[in-house]
Nucleic acid binder design. Structure first.
Length: 273
DNA sequence: ACCACAACCTGGCCGC
DNA sequence: TGCGGCCAGGTTGTGG
């Protein structure tokens, strides 16, 4: 599932293929993926536009166009953007094709059809409500502590809240909490100063390591060249990777939090402090 | 302001 | 072997 490290990898690896190119046309095989504007307007505003930049914010990919429009893509759980030749066979579950001049196409493959594509004038319409970027300088332990102090929900639920901090999803929330030795059900405001410091460090370490490994290919995620990332081999608890805790051997617990499967070690991540 | 949960989807897995 | 049922999960929308 594409989270921050996966989307960052896609941004980095897609950039050389798209920036400086012109969009010759877009085909939508599943119109439900288009959030705004209308299909008709989408085609007319995209056709012939130059791509002047590619950025990531949270889990969103933002293509800047020469018209000033922004093409925003969210891959949700199962989306991939694969680079190929116009003439090549589209990957399975291709829902859209962005054709570029020079014979290159970007194939948007998405078995679950959750992915979304939209065209806007102002990026803040979409990413304006996102929390801080966890790898940027303004995300300090002090900022994290201050924001956590106002929240009573389980820390796992807070980490998944994109308005609290952008880009963390189910896998990296579990990994960061395990790394920091914090139980996922702990009320956010109950974390000690030391625990907040450990959590801050764990979030950054887990995300940076995953970016170094080009993202985690658990289900569906592939890099733009079609190859998998290797970050999943670094996981210790996420996605039920281990039956037993890699540190103490205790069976890994699996409970739903906010409807999301959560893996943790009840001994290394004690609920009562 | 904060919190909780259903809805959106379909491939893959489990049990019979 | 085949089939039905259920799970996964990011974001939006709704309601408390």
């Amino acid at each position: 599932m594409p989270e921050l490290p996966e989307v960052e990898t896609i941004k980095n690896e897609l950039e050389p293929y798209v920036v400086g190119r012109n969009i010759s046309g877009v085909t939508l095989f599943w119109e439900g993926m288009l959030r705004q504007p209308s299909v008709r307007e989408f085609h007319s505003r995209l056709s012939g536009q130059g791509i002047t930049g590619l950025k990531r914010r949270g889990k969103y990919l933002i293509f800047s166009l020469s018209s000033g429009d922004l093409l925003v893509i969210h891959l949700k759980m199962s989306g991939s953007l694969i680079v190929g030749k116009d003439s090549s066979e589209p990957p399975k579950y291709t829902r859209a094709i962005i054709r570029l001049d020079g014979g290159t196409s970007i194939f948007f493959s998405d078995p679950r059809k959750f992915g979304k594509i939209q065209l806007v004038k102002d990026k803040d319409d979409i990413v304006g409500k996102l929390g801080p970027e966890p790898l940027e300088a303004d995300f300090t332990p002090e900022v994290l502590a201050q924001r956590l102090s106002k929240r009573k929900a389980p820390i796992k639920a807070i980490l998944l809240d994109q308005g609290f901090v952008a880009g963390i999803g189910n896998m990296y929330a579990d990994e960061a909490l395990f790394s920091a030795g914090i139980h996922p059900l702990r009320p956010a405001s109950s974390l000690s100063q030391d625990e907040v410091a450990r959590l801050h460090s764990a979030i950054q370490q887990v995300l940076r390591s995953a970016i170094t490994n080009k993202g985690a290919s658990i289900v569906n995620y592939l890099r733009p060249d079609g190859t998998p990332g290797t970050a999943q081999f670094q996981f210790r608890v996420a996605h039920g990777r281990a039956k037993n805790c890699p540190v103490c051997g205790t069976p890994i617990a699996h409970i739903p939090i906010r409807g999301r499967g959560s893996y943790f070690c009840s001994k290394c991540q004690p609920e009562k402090v």
